Amino acid sequence: MLRWALTFLVIAIIAALFGFGGIAGAAADIAKIIFFIFVVLLVISLFANALRGNPPKN
């Protein structure tokens, strides 16, 4: 049981080093940029499909 406690302690320390450093903030900023890029691409794709004017098949 002590081995599991020490294992989780080491994992928590490593996570804290990454979380309290600049890595977490940078990763969140990159995720926001990628999200907005894909939203713009989705809107462009929807408009392109609407302008193409293919009627739905019955």
Score class of each variant (00 low, 15 high):
Met1Phe: 03
Met1Arg: 04
Leu2Asp: 09
Leu2Ala: 10
Arg3Ser: 05
Trp4Pro: 00
Ala5Trp: 05
Ala5Thr: 04
Ala5Val: 04
Ala5Glu: 06
Leu6Val: 01
Leu6Asp: 06
Thr7Val: 07
Thr7Gly: 02
Phe8Gln: 05
Leu9Val: 03
Leu9Ser: 07
Val10Cys: 01
Val10Tyr: 01
Val10Met: 01
Ile11Ser: 03
Ile11Val: 09
Ile11Cys: 05
Ala12Thr: 05
Ala12Leu: 07
Ile14Pro: 01
Ile14His: 02
Ala15Phe: 00
Ala15Leu: 02
Ala16Asn: 08
Ala16His: 07
Ala16Ser: 09
Ala16Asp: 07
Phe18Lys: 00
Gly19His: 12
Phe20Leu: 09
Phe20Met: 07
Phe20Glu: 04
Gly22Asp: 15
Gly22Gln: 13
Gly22Ile: 09
Ile23Thr: 11
Ile23Pro: 03
Ala24Thr: 11
Ala24Pro: 01
Gly25Met: 02
Gly25Pro: 00
Gly25Ile: 01
Gly25Thr: 04
Gly25Trp: 02
Gly25Val: 01
Ala26Lys: 15
Ala26Ile: 13
Ala26Thr: 14
Ala26Trp: 15
Ala28Arg: 12
Ala28Ser: 10
Asp29Glu: 15
Asp29Val: 10
Ile30Arg: 12
Ile30Met: 10
Ile30Gln: 11
Ala31Ile: 13
Lys32Pro: 01
Ile33Phe: 11
Ile33Leu: 14
Ile34His: 14
Ile34Arg: 11
Phe35Ala: 08
Phe35His: 10
Phe35Thr: 02
Phe35Trp: 10
Phe35Ser: 08
Phe36Gln: 13
Ile37Asn: 06
Phe38Leu: 12
Phe38Ile: 09
Phe38Asn: 13
Phe38Gln: 13
Val39Gln: 06
Val39Cys: 03
Val40Trp: 00
Val40Asn: 00
Leu41Asp: 08
Leu41Cys: 08
Leu42Met: 10
Val43Ala: 07
Val43Trp: 03
Val43Asp: 00
Val43Glu: 01
Ser45Ala: 13
Leu46Asn: 04
Leu46Ile: 14
Leu46Glu: 08
Phe47Glu: 10
Ala48Glu: 02
Ala48Phe: 10
Ala48Leu: 14
Asn49Cys: 07
Asn49Asp: 12
Asn49Leu: 09
Asn49Ala: 11
Leu51Gln: 10
Leu51Ser: 09
Leu51Lys: 11
Arg52Phe: 12
Arg52Met: 10
Gly53Ala: 11
Asn54His: 06
Asn54Met: 09
Asn54Leu: 10
Pro55Glu: 05
Pro55Phe: 00
Pro56Phe: 15
Pro56Glu: 14
Pro56Tyr: 15
Lys57Ala: 12
Asn58Val: 09
Asn58His: 14
Asn58Met: 14
Asn58Lys: 15
Asn58Glu: 15
